[in-house]
Design a protein around this nucleic acid. Structure first.
Lengths: 145, 145
DNA sequence: TGCAAACCCCACTGGGGAACCGGGATATAA
DNA sequence: TTATATCCCGGTTCCCCAGTGGGGTTTGCA
């Protein structure tokens, strides 16, 4: 799990789509990009990946754009990240088969640590994040008054 | 946290040093590399990083090699990984300052997931891994009898 | 029908890390 | 002094990230 800039962009885009979920109309790349300060040509690629992963739908042509493919409370952060980070294809050796007992033990711990992070990510849906954002907004307002 | 091939190599090397910890004599790169099937020239670099990070000591010249710098029960997996993965310096933008409320919320979850994995990694010392390996060896022996 | 808005697809760059390989300098035990 | 090790510097190949650019296709609307 990378938790990189790329992943953050993708989640931010999904959150914008979440905010417009009730409206039946699509959101355009440009608007999402402007709202979240993401380079639009780059965001386009990320949305394409999310579409191929079945997380968003798109409508082509004039007045087109993107929708969430499912309800925001049915999309976890984990599924978004797995989609966007796709198969990171382990760029070389570190062969699939551990060669020594030590190697096997180390990889079990690796897996345990990954599972732990995945557990956190699995417990947050887009709706949860959206709600957290609302709470945060209220707090910010209180400070400014 | 990468949990990559590089990190695995480093931990395997540390485990070899752990096994020889009671002996006062150093272990050479060649021997570690042979035991764990790690390219020796690559392992050399990793051990240099571990030395600069204060996890291992080295003795130069003939009959030289590497020792653990501390007792194996005082070295956690987390400290090994932080040393070997260094400051991964976030290769570009994704600027340090979140620009939107959404961005801040997302990064908090990111951090929560990272902390969760770190918690696991912090709870294992080299000695723990060494003991796990011994147990695994026993189990393997049972299968072969 | 034609135009413009939007997505779609391919390709390319520049930077950086992973995973190596190789050569030569340096320290040290024998 | 010599063999044996680490140390240090550099280069190579590959892949991913982050971003840019061009051209193609679909669609709503006048």
């Amino acid at each position: 799990m990378e938790l990189s800039c790329k992943s953050e962009y993708a989640v931010l885009a999904l959150l914008e789509l979440t905010a417009h979920f009730s409206q039946g109309e699509p959101l355009q790349i440009r608007q999402i990009a402007a709202q979240q300060s993401i380079p639009d040509r780059y965001l386009e690629q990320l949305l394409a990946t999310l579409r191929r992963g079945g997380l968003v739908r798109s409508q082509r042509g004039a007045k087109g754009g993107y929708f969430l493919a499912r309800e925001p409370w049915n999309i976890t952060l984990l599924s978004a990240l797995e989609c966007i980070e796709g198969s990171n294809a382990q760029q070389a050796n570190c062969e699939d088969e551990p060669k020594t007992v030590e190697s096997a033990v180390v990889r079990e711990i690796w897996q345990e640590a990954r599972d732990s992070a995945h557990g956190i990510l699995k417990n947050y849906t887009l709706q949860d994040l959206h709600d957290l954002r609302d709470k945060r907004r209220e707090v910010n307002l209180m400070y400014y008054i």
